[in-house]
């Protein structure tokens, strides 16, 4: 399979053939604007995720999800909740996700709130083993959390782990769906939409971000937020996430990331500026310092991990 060859090249830690530039005036990214059907990309995989029988209610549609990515995360499922295992960095990052969401929501607190009751509905896309979904479901200000992930093995871990906490088993508090976001029913009104739709560490695993984001956006309630975290495509991120994290320190399993899939903050901001009905974008750059954990770094979005949030207009 051609796509496997592309990944192998990166596994050999060969430097990227085309140099990324830190300049914000970089040309518009090809990938994010590309219409997938018109690009004969070696990496493009059009697939229909096979559904387990009990998930037959989900729509059978095209998914943005690369099956190789699903296989990779299936393999990581067992260690997902080991705080000293391969997901440690995600566990440590989790509190910052709540910090960022609170910060985003605070910018619009004075205007009409998306949730007058104060009880938020969350949709966590690419929820994995449920690190964020569980934590959101425990917060007192949460009405419900829906986690979706296309990897059946990872979702089985999420469901099994939630059984350890009676609070999460309260009816309606936390629900998992084994699906890609494209397979969710298109919401028919604000009652079916969410106050917070999150894509944490997901975008860098998606082959075609633009159509993927477009399939996520309808799920956000007017006044609600789409929040994500991902990694900028820079020399620094290539060095830290591919070479140091995967090859030298082996902190992250080899093959977790495909550097060429990374999306820059400037690209996201420019893309959302063109989407009607979306504004108030927020950014927070973060850096992992061994021994100290994650911390916010002003301008960090220019070279590594960052959070990005954008609000759907109320109109």
């Amino acid at each position: 399979m051609a796509s496997a060859g592309g990944r192998l090249a990166l596994r050999g830690i060969r430097p990227p053939t085309k140099l990324p530039t830190l300049s914000p005036s970089r040309q518009l990214p090809v990938r994010i604007c590309a219409n997938p059907s018109s690009v004969p990309s070696a990496r493009y995989t059009s697939t229909t995720t096979s559904q387990p029988p009990n998930e037959s209610t989900e729509h059978e549609t095209q998914s943005s999800v690369d099956p190789a990515e699903i296989r990779h995360f299936d393999g990581l499922a067992s260690s997902w909740w080991d705080p000293y295992g391969t997901s440690r960095l995600l566990h440590l990052m989790n509190p910052l996700r709540h910090t960022f969401i609170s910060r985003c929501r605070a910018t619009s607190a004075k205007s009409a709130s998306s949730a007058p009751s104060g009880q938020l509905r969350y949709l966590d896309v690419g929820c994995g083993g449920g690190i964020f979904a569980e934590s959101a479901a425990r917060l007192p200000g949460t009405a419900s959390v829906t986690g979706v992930d296309p990897s059946p093995a990872v979702l089985a871990v999420a469901r099994a782990h939630a059984r350890r906490d009676p609070v999460l088993l309260e009816p309606g508090r936390l629900e998992y769906r084994n699906a890609a976001v494209e397979q969710l029913a298109r919401p028919e009104g604000p009652g079916q939409q969410y106050d917070v739709v999150s894509l944490f560490e997901v975008l860098e695993h998606v082959s075609y971000p633009a159509p993927f984001l477009q399939s996520v956006m309808p799920h956000v309630k007017p006044g609600g937020w789409l929040v994500l975290s991902t990694i900028a495509r820079t020399w620094t991120s290539w060095l830290t996430t591919k070479v140091v994290a995967e090859e030298v320190v082996r902190m992250v399993p080899r093959g977790t990331h495909d550097w060429s899939k990374y999306v820059n903050e400037s690209e996201l901001r420019a893309w959302f500026a063109k989407q009607p009905g979306w504004d108030n974008s927020q950014t927070m750059g973060v850096v992992y310092v061994p021994g100290m954990g994650w911390s916010e770094v002003r301008g960090g979005e220019g070279f590594g991990n960052y959070f990005f949030g954008v609000q759907k207009s109320i109109s």
Partner: peptide, 12 residues
């Protein structure tokens, strides 16, 4: 931990 939605019994 409660403010961050963590399980207060978890090692983390």
């Amino acid at each position: 931990a409660v403010e961050q939605g963590q399980d207060i019994g978890s090692l983390l």
